[in-house]
Design a binder for these strands. Structure first.
Lengths: 239, 239
DNA sequence: CCTCTTTATAGTCGTGGTGACTATTAAAAG
DNA sequence: CTTTTAATAGTCACCACGACTATAAAGAGG
C-alpha cells in the first residue's frame, strides 16, 4: 500500500461470481445461468455481476444471489468467500478481477431466469456442462472448499430446511463428498457433538416416507466440529 | 458476469497485501513496513502494493515479497491466498480492493527497507503496534488461517530451514498456536505421519546447543496430514 | 392378514490415535 | 563429578471410530 502517490496504478473491473449449491434428491446441484451475450453466448456460467461503487464484495454477492434466485430473503443465508481469481486473460474482453463466493441453500426453489441471463437453472454437479470463463475451475474449488467445511464445521445444516431428519443430513455429506457413510456411525457422531443438531419439538417425519418414521431435528448453535468429521478414503489412512 | 454490456460498471484500484510470517527464537514474527506518506504516515502496515496491468494477484504478491524482503529467490516460497478485503472506506482516499496473502518464511533475514517504505522490520506478533487501514484485521485473519493450516497440512516445514530438528518444528506449532505441546507426543505424531519429515543425511544438530544433540530432518513430500494434528483446548473437547 | 422390504434406532467389539506419564541417553554448565 | 538441559524411548488408559449385528416401525404386495 505504500508508494501510493509515486506509482501509476491501473484500475480494474471487479466482479463477484457465485457457486450456489444445494442438495436435491441426494445429489449435489449448482445454480447456473445461460449466457445471452458474447463471449461464451449460449454457454452456462456461474451467476454473478459487477461490483457497484459503494458495495463490498459480500454485499454484491448477496444482492446477486437475491436477484438470481428470486428469493426475497437472503439474510442469514450461508455465504462464504472462496477465493479471488485474477489471471490476466480470464475474460477475453478485458481485465476482470473476480471475487468468488460459495452459497449453501437449503431447498431448491426453481430460479426465475431474471435480468440479463437467458435462463437460470439448477443442474446436477456431476452432469454440469463445460462452463464459460474459468468458472469450471471456480466450481471445482467451491466443491472442494465446501467438502472441507463439512469436515470441520456444522455448515451441513445450511443445506437442510428448518426441520430435517438425520438421513437428510447424511445425504448432504454423501452428495458433497461423493462417498457413502455408515448410517449408525454417522448418527452416533452427529448426536455426540453438542450443539450440532437439536431435537425438533413436533416429533415424527414428513409424510409419505417408506420405512420407520425418523425423528426431526433442527440446527443447533454450534458452528465448529470438535473433533472433526473426516471424510473417508482420501488416501488409505483415516482416523 | 452476464449483463456486461448492459450495465455501467465501476473500475477499482486493486492491491495485494502480504502477511509475511516467520518464527524467530520461538516467537511468531511478522514483516511490517513503516509508512512514509499520508494517510497513516508513520504507522506500521503490511507490505503490499498495486497490481500491475498484466499481473495476477499471485504474481504481484510474489513480486512484492521479493521487493520487501530483498530475497532474490522467492520461487518455491510458501504463498497462499487469504481473503479479499473490499469494504468501502477501508482506504480513506479511494476505493481499493485488496487481495491478501499469507507468506511463510523459513528464516528471518533482516529486510532492507526498500523503495517507498520508511523502513521494514520483523516485529513480534504479540507486540505489534496498531496497523494502518484494516491491516490489523488482515493480520489476525492470517494467523488464524495459518494456525488452521498447521492442523491439516505439512505447512509447518515452510517455517523451517532446509534441515531442522523436531524441537524447531514443534516451536513453530507452539508459536503459531500460542500453546505448548508435549514433546514426546509431538515427536511420535510427526514421525508416524509418512512423508511429513525425512531424516537428513548428516546426522546431528547444529553446534552450540545445550542438551543432547537432536537429529536433523528435512521436509518430506507429503502436503496433507491424515489424521490431522489438532491444536489443544479450543474448547474442552479434543480428540 | 402375513410377510417382505425399507428405513430408523440401538448396541457391541476391536483397533488405533492420543494425552499423560515415566525412564534413559547425551551433551553443556557449574 | 554432579547438575542441568534437552532428545529419545517406552508405557498405559481412554475414547473416537470403523465394522458390524439386532431390533423397531412403517409401507408394499400377495
Amino acid at each position: 500500500m505504500q508508494g501510493y502517490d509515486k506509482h501509476a496504478y491501473e484500475l480494474f473491473a471487479v466482479t463477484v461470481d457465485l457457486a450456489v449449491l444445494t442438495v436435491r434428491e441426494g445429489a449435489l446441484h449448482v445454480l447456473l445461468v445461460e449466457r445471452g451475450q458474447q463471449p461464451y453466448a449460449g454457454r452456462w456460467a456461474l451467476p454473478g455481476g459487477f461490483l457497484l461503487p459503494d458495495e463490498s464484495a459480500e454485499t454484491a454477492a448477496r444482492r446477486e444471489l437475491a436477484e438470481e434466485t428470486g428469493l426475497g430473503d437472503v439474510t442469514g443465508l450461508h455465504l462464504g468467500q472462496l477465493r479471488t481469481y485474477s489471471e490476466p486473460g480470464r475474460d477475453p474482453r478485458m481485465r476482470v478481477v473476480s471475487v468468488a463466493f460459495t452459497a449453501l441453500l437449503p431447498d431448491a426453489p426453481e430460479p426465475r431466469g431474471g435480468g440479463d441471463a437467458a435462463q437460470a437453472r439448477w443442474l446436477p454437479y456431476d452432469a454440469a456442462p463445460p462452463l464459460a470463463f474459468d468458472h469450471g475451475l471456480i466450481l471445482a474449488d467451491a466443491r472442494e472448499r465446501v467438502g472441507a467445511q463439512l469436515e470441520h464445521t456444522c455448515a451441513a445444516t445450511a443445506f437442510c430446511p428448518a426441520a430435517f431428519t438425520l438421513g437428510e443430513l447424511q445425504q448432504v455429506y454423501e452428495a458433497v463428498w461423493g462417498s457413502t457413510l455408515d448410517r449408525a456411525n454417522f448418527r452416533r457422531k452427529v448426536l455426540a457433538t453438542p450443539g450440532f443438531v437439536e431435537p425438533a419439538a413436533g416429533a415424527a417425519r414428513l409424510t409419505g416416507g417408506r420405512g420407520k418414521p425418523a425423528a426431526l431435528y433442527r440446527a443447533g448453535g454450534a458452528t465448529t466440529l470438535h473433533p472433526p468429521l473426516l471424510r473417508p478414503s482420501r488416501e488409505g489412512r483415516s482416523a
